[in-house]
Design a protein around this nucleic acid. Structure first.
Lengths: 336, 336
DNA sequence: CTGTTAGCGCATTCAG
DNA sequence: CTGAATGCGCTAACAG
């Protein structure tokens, strides 16, 4: 049998309420009693049952992180930031992966209204084009903070990167290196960040008097092979681009794969730039120029914002939109 | 107020125990009643309180994953595998990062005896050289499965890679490409997998009649700058190696950084091979040959083994030691 | 097949 | 400063 508050009470000839209060440093308990209780608790290795406490207090000291995937350095870094804050606050972090599947996202959102979590951090899936499940969460007053891929249809706090500027800078970088026909690779037309990056791309083209060629704006799915097919078609088609701006890393990878297959020399015949958050620059192909997001900081800020909701009442309607800066990193001697 | 079992009971003129049983498809309840109950539950959007249930059943449907870090593709992939299984089993996954700090690991292990989790998956920290906290967990009968970095001092299931063979193959690969003085970069002398890799390294040297030079066996810490210093010293010292076998990716990165600084041409003057699990081969520097672990599968197998413990009684003393195979991946035209 | 009752372990009223 | 009593929401005897 495990030692509980009742065991301590018996051992010390005190009531369970005294024990409970002593353990939580209530002002109503004398220092001597507190000391006795704590010593006994330590001696018997007392571990409070978190679920009994949660049931009673309607607080779980647990937050959920709902994200599309984890094998992507951006999200791994963001979780790192989130977990960092959670440890400080003595909270627990549950992870849920949607794999870009809106049904899973809906399932998590609906399930997690049951009190298991005190709040949620979320980056929506690429498929998500309906927000009922998120609206419902808000109705149930589950504190919710979006990061990176936010839901603009919902009043809520969010932490993002300057996606428009990032897209603009990426595109201008290619233009300044002589590109005239720049392709844009988009993960999903539903994603807030992806859309902003594309707007930046378009703004840069406009600024430099380059006309927009719809055929160069490609949209992808979760299907890697199909994505590569599409890239092959465009790279070998009439519209043949001289530059590629990939809105996410996995599309840059697809492009590299295709170039290898088509024998296209990357820095010379085709210049590629991509949003990417790999922390291994020295291991990377030196021809890749990246736009890097402050992913750890985004996770950290998102968690901090969530805790602002959790710690203060009356904050539920105060929404923060924090936008952090991305960095363009050209690399190596053959940097484009 | 949130709708609970009592609300349903009132609405249907049934007792709460009937509701509870109907919701869990107990054989004692008629199909008609079950249907009525479920319809009402759906109508009122009833969400059972998980903590009430956990308190009552002493089961949390939650597992913990305790790992050194997450910004490392091996662990990200492993979590992916773990979460995949957890979703199938309708379990929840808590993440705890030790950042290679034994004190954190001890803190998590000791805290998580309180019933919050039904079981734990763990990869021990590089600092961990004392296992009292793990022994205590076992005593409390918290099901525990190690993966990748296991604790051999404890009777337990584990899922690993063939680290000895991986180390052997890596070393032999360098030897076959002409290396005579191969450095081994070790993360920690406490780590099971690192030690096995080193044994493989030594075995390959012995097989090829190459004497072992202690100066070429380098041990590192969590301090990146200090690690690079040490590499600089050896690379520019009298023992100057012509090949490097990094037991983990971060040490390969450190080596690349140093080579860049010292103007060492990687494929020609120095050949580098490393354990690494990056899923972005086309973005990688083509000079890097890697030993890749089946990380997703390791996570999956570890989770499956844990669930074997959770689902069957009397399994607690049946331990499985599963060893999966690593793959040596030479890459690109300049592959070493 | 359904209802009554008694906790799971803890926090918090309300009394002293 | 401390104790007795109540209930968080659910499950599981036990009874019928």
């Amino acid at each position: 049998m495990s030692v509980d508050i009742k065991t301590l009470a018996k051992n010390l000839n005190l009531s369970i309420s005294t024990i409970s209060r002593a353990l939580r440093d209530s002002y109503e308990i004398s220092d001597k009693t507190k000391l006795r209780v704590k010593e006994m608790a330590a001696k018997l290795n007392y571990q409070p049952n978190p679920y009994a406490s949660s049931l009673r207090k309607h607080k779980s000291k647990t937050i959920a992180v709902v994200i599309p995937e984890i094998t992507n350095n951006f999200f791994a870094l963001a979780i790192n930031g989130i977990e960092y804050v959670a440890q400080e606050k003595e909270y627990h972090v549950l992870i849920y992966l949607t794999h870009e599947n809106i049904k899973k996202e809906i399932g998590f959102a609906s399930h997690l209204q049951n009190g298991r979590i005190d709040g949620m951090l979320m980056s929506i899936s690429a498929e998500t084009n309906n927000y009922d499940h998120l609206i419902e969460l808000k109705k149930k007053e589950v504190p919710l903070v979006f990061f990176d891929r936010i839901c603009e249809a919902i009043e809520s706090s969010s932490i993002t990167t300057d996606d428009f500027e990032g897209g603009f800078n990426a595109t201008e970088h290619l233009i300044q290196r002589g590109c005239k026909k720049i392709a844009y690779l988009d993960l999903s037309r539903y994603l807030s960040n992806s859309n902003k990056r594309m707007q930046g791309y378009i703004a840069a083209l406009v600024k430099h008097n380059i006309s927009i060629d719809e055929r160069l704006i490609m949209r992808f799915t979760n299907n890697i092979a199909a994505n590569e097919e599409q890239i092959v078609r465009v790279l070998s088609g009439a519209e043949k681009p001289d530059g590629v701006f990939a809105s996410v890393e996995k599309l840059a990878i697809a492009t590299y794969n295709v170039c290898q297959r088509l024998n296209i020399n990357i820095p010379k015949q085709l210049k590629i730039i991509s949003f990417s958050n790999l922390e291994i620059s020295s291991l990377l192909n030196p021809s890749l120029t990246t736009i890097t997001q402050p992913a750890f900081e985004i996770g950290k800020q998102a968690a901090l914002q969530l805790f602002r909701y959790l710690e203060k009442k009356n904050m539920m309607n105060v929404h923060e939109k924090i936008i952090l800066k991305s960095t363009l990193i050209p690399r190596g001697s053959t940097a484009i």
